[in-house]
Design a protein around this nucleic acid. Structure first.
Lengths: 259, 259
DNA sequence: AAGTGGTCTAGACCACTCT
DNA sequence: GAGTGGTCTAGACCACTTC
């Protein structure tokens, strides 16, 4: 006999095989980080041709269960503990305790966070950013680009933009490390009290550049999150553009009931 | 000669073909809603075999540029305007005006919404749902599965679960159409006043089943949104699991600043 | 019945990784 | 060099749509 997969069920053979392997992963018969049998072995095991095995594995890749490396094989993905960004991450109490938002959240997930600052300096505001900051397109703004790591693997690339008239008075914003509590703490120290943050979320496939920056395989999904930080005065003093590896994050929001 | 695609470039043939067709779509040579040449024609045109043509078309499907229907052909997708779900969608005033959440939001986007109820009835609560509803796993709960369309194309599949002791007293919840304002309106009429909703968002690639239900290709990204509706009494009286075609939605949230 | 896409085969050759 | 996945072929048969 060829395998445990039922011969007859109307379902395409490659899906039956994919389901079978998925079960093995879920039951732990195939442990995380372990190697999935090679195509040749699977052809043998299930008595099908290479094309069918490849379609089955493609299915598992699409489901995010395995990753494949040419010349090496396919490996069961270790479900990384997903970090979660809750609405809690912007609390002032965290800032007062010297914690920037990303530290407040990763520490809850038991993940060691690292940051690499990619660039800090003035740039001409792109159209969409200018619009959100309510400045004219091409106006000088401060841009802070940085890359975040969880336990050493890159997971998130973020760029903050601040209007020049706000940024120029706060020297710490030009440093790689803006000090305890992050840039929001510095902004509040300089009279910009926050009233609310608005976030918009999109999901799509990574572009080639994003895939490279986050060392993802092409075709991986990313979450594109943009945030506006609004002060009591009703002004947007910072906008932040973030690209996140989708499988690393779960986003959490609370919506109070309103009339 | 076989085609306009350069013979030599290191790039796989199927990607060259996909790129070529993508250009034709972007330049308008292939108009929206028009039919992509059949596989047989493309095999002829590019001088490749069926498998190669099929991989090229799969690529276009993954990019969201075409959709394929068995026995009919592949068609260029018209880019529909994205709907946006804002935190505004659960306002009681919308419900009092007889509008369910999805109507409140789609009408702002100028898109014609349609709903198809897939099933309504008791089911045994799966583990994750039971956990969120604070009932025991396998307990009887009411499940309402429905599929939403924007201008006729399926964009979202949602399943609501309600504890049986809550649902059984509200006969409208067992109807396909629960009446003006949707099920939240019925729940509030029966003494379940909402305090807040919590939403968690994940993004990943569509499974085969999801792809079929939303007529996407496997490899398209989806947004997986889960919502708990919490009453003043602190009880979760409904949880909703939603799968959305990622390219159809932008999610919007407001986060009030807190201490 | 003719045309379409969906699945599958049994090979071939190439590119990459590891030893 | 042996083993892996990546691409591709030239067919076959099936399921669905249209006429």
């Amino acid at each position: 006999m060829t395998s445990a997969v039922g011969a007859k069920s109307g379902k395409p053979r490659y899906l039956q095989i994919a389901d079978d392997i998925e079960q093995q992963i879920k039951t732990g018969a195939l442990a995380p980080a372990s190697e999935v049998p090679s195509e040749a072995q699977l052809m043998d095991r299930y008595g099908v041709s290479s094309g069918t095995v490849r379609k089955a594995i493609a299915e598992l890749r699409a489901a995010g269960l395995v990753e494949t490396h040419q010349g090496k094989g396919s490996f069961v993905k270790s479900r990384p503990p997903v970090t979660r960004k809750s609405s809690d991450r912007f609390r002032r109490s965290h800032r007062r305790a010297g914690k920037a938002a990303y530290i407040a959240e990763t520490e809850q997930a038991g993940v060691k966070p690292t940051v690499r600052v990619l660039s800090v300096g003035p740039v001409a505001a792109p159209a969409e950013i200018a619009d959100r900051l309510a400045v004219t397109e091409g106006a000088k703004v401060l841009a802070r680009r940085r890359l975040y790591f969880s336990d050493g693997t890159p997971t998130e690339e973020a760029t903050s933009y601040l209007p020049w008239d706000v940024a120029r008075d706060i020297p710490e914003l030009f440093e790689d490390n803006p000090g305890g509590g992050g840039i929001y703490a510095r902004l509040e120290e300089h009279g910009h009290e926050f009233a609310e943050y608005t976030e918009t979320i999109r999901a799509r496939l990574a572009t080639k550049q994003e895939a490279t920056a986050l060392s993802l395989s092409p075709g991986s999904p990313v979450i594109h999150l943009t945030r506006n930080a609004v002060t009591d005065a009703g002004r947007v003093v910072e906008v932040c553009d973030t690209i996140m590896a989708a499988d690393q994050f779960v986003l959490d929001y609370r919506i109070p009931a309103t009339d």
